[in-house]
Amino acid sequence: MPKKKNLPLEKTTSNVVENPWSVLREFTDARIGLGRAGISLPTSHLLDFQLAHAQAQDAVHLPLDIEYVCNQIDNTSFSVNLTSKTVHKSDLQKKGHETILLHSQAVDRFMYLQRPDLGRRLNEESANLLKNIQTPEYDLAIVIVDGLSSLAIKENAVNFIDKLAQTLSKDSATWSLAPFTIVEQGRVAVGDEVGSLLKAKATLVLVGERPGLSSPDSLGLYLTWDAKVGLPDANRNCISNVRLDGLSYDEAVKKTFYLLKESRRLQLSGVNLKDRTTSDEIEQIQSEENFLLN
């Protein structure tokens, strides 16, 4: 039987009471075990927070490095039966890239932040560009949108697409993929317009999520079946926090693939399409002990 006195006192250094359970931070990035000065935050943690907030505010305003992402796409050999490079290699691609570059109606970040309605629609030039191309019906359009974190796109978007393409290519059903598109100053719903103009049955939007203090680079995935301008958000399925320190690419691909297949089978998306994948991570953790139940 362990005795209370076997546990060390929380270290009291000068005016700060430290929390020995701060070692549990190996399980989470949450700011646990910060200790306290009286009942308030110790100075060091107060200032750490202020710095993180300053960095996140700066991240919101960083423009997407389009050139970098386009090069990444060009330099990745996606499974051949997926991309339709020959179909759309024409005047669609600016600067010689394989990717179609689009822009929302929000001309800059300041307007983007104040006018979400403009971020949900393509500007005239972009809409015309898509209207004027002859596309067959595609099974899937992947739309890359900067959202509130261009860093999330830069670090995760193409890596995720690469893994998803590998999985799709192994599926018994064929998946014809629309040309990749990148939308600047875009919000999730801009994918509805892109997907419908590309005549895609399913649209998958990859968007930079709002930066958190510990996660300036989190990618969100939104699946919509039969996308049309003006669809309610309840028609979408969301997978959140895809990044190196968050939901792994493999897990995200597994969930996305499941949702895509189900969406195609049921011809719908949103609240009536439930994600019933079993998470490996949760399975694995279940086999470990919950330390509070020891």
């Binding site: 359970w21 989470t28 949450a30 646990i32 998470s279 279940q286 919950n290 330390f291």
Partner: peptide, 21 residues
């Protein structure tokens, strides 16, 4: 509110403990 980006049970439990204490 013990949220965790991957719903990691140990991470969630650590935040619950922190909050309770």
């Amino acid at each position: 509110q013990p949220n965790h980006p991957t719903d990691d049970v140990r991470g969630i439990t650590a935040s619950i403990l922190d909050g309770l204490l």
